[in-house]
Design a protein around this nucleic acid. Structure first.
Lengths: 162, 162
DNA sequence: CTTACTGCAAAAGCTTTGCATCCGT
DNA sequence: ACGGATGCAAAGCTTTTGCAGTAAG
């Protein structure tokens, strides 16, 4: 029932182990979701996806596992103050995101050039730039259509909610 | 004692008025801070700066005033989930920020090119892009120096804290 | 005068923490 | 066995909300 480890998942567990973290079944499952979900899940989403398989999983464990990943630099955290943070352990290095304000989808567009901006900025300002965040907010094609038909409005993330 | 209105402050109050919002002394003071502070203050910071002049000001009023500004599109909100949000009513349109992780300073570097990226992205993905956020995180020159002398570490925002 | 605004306190979220028990290594 | 991890519940923080009194237009 357990799928084979992807290279990325293997790299994460290796890193955690060498930092002294233990790989428990809960952690492995959480890491798998974080490393293999292309949708930048929230903590809640990770939790709910795993609950059927691990009925006594706790939200705290998901938070703590993500804290471990952050300490190792193995996850990218997209912070929001008005909604749940979202996580990407598949690509922990900073990269641009395209966020649909209709359905909440988060995509990873290919968009080079930011690194160059960072270098130019560092040169111009004297700052040492360690990381960055580039998010574009808008409406995906689907939500643009739905926006025109007020009948069937598009609630954020209709699939999995409280 | 009251400084003359800057053009930006006048524009904000005009916009609020035409939307049916009332300009109270508290609001005017809050708007003044938000529109004229170059340091992207937090709600707490706005509150503490005004407390000497308006001793019974409440935090809720600051939050509510910012909500009004957001509804009118007259303030830029930089959201963080692990610290207070920061606000810029001087330049409400999206623009890059340079954030020092040592002292918490937020600067407005001149850095064109993001708009072009947004247009290219919209074309390539079919998304309609409404806004964006570009933040660079690093250490300002001062904090780089302090980082080397562990003696006098640089606490975030040494001037005004709880 | 009408209706929005203020300040206070309570409520709401999301995230973190304390602790006893459990289980990787 | 040792020491970190888990799960539960409580605590923490920032932000929002409800309400009675107050004041802008």
């Amino acid at each position: 029932m357990t799928s084979p480890d992807t290279p990325r998942l293997a790299a994460i567990t290796a890193r955690l182990r060498e930092r002294g973290y233990r790989i428990t079944p809960q952690r492995l499952a959480i890491l798998r979701v974080l490393a293999e979900s292309p949708d930048h899940p929230t903590v809640e989403t990770v939790y709910r996806r795993l609950l059927p398989d691990i009925p006594d999983l706790s939200l705290a464990t998901v938070y703590k596992t993500i804290a471990a990943l952050k300490a190792c630099g193995e996850v990218l955290e997209l912070q929001f103050s008005d909604r749940d943070n979202r996580y990407d352990a598949a690509r922990p290095e900073p990269h641009p995101h395209l966020i649909c304000q209709g359905c909440g989808a988060v995509a990873d567009p290919e968009l080079p050039g930011v690194e160059a901006m960072a270098k130019a900025l560092a040169r111009a300002t004297g700052y040492s730039i360690l990381t960055h965040r580039l998010d574009f907010f808008g409406l995906c094609p689907k939500c643009q259509i739905k926006r025109d038909k007020p009948d069937q409005a598009s609630p954020p993330d209709p699939s999995e909610k409280k």
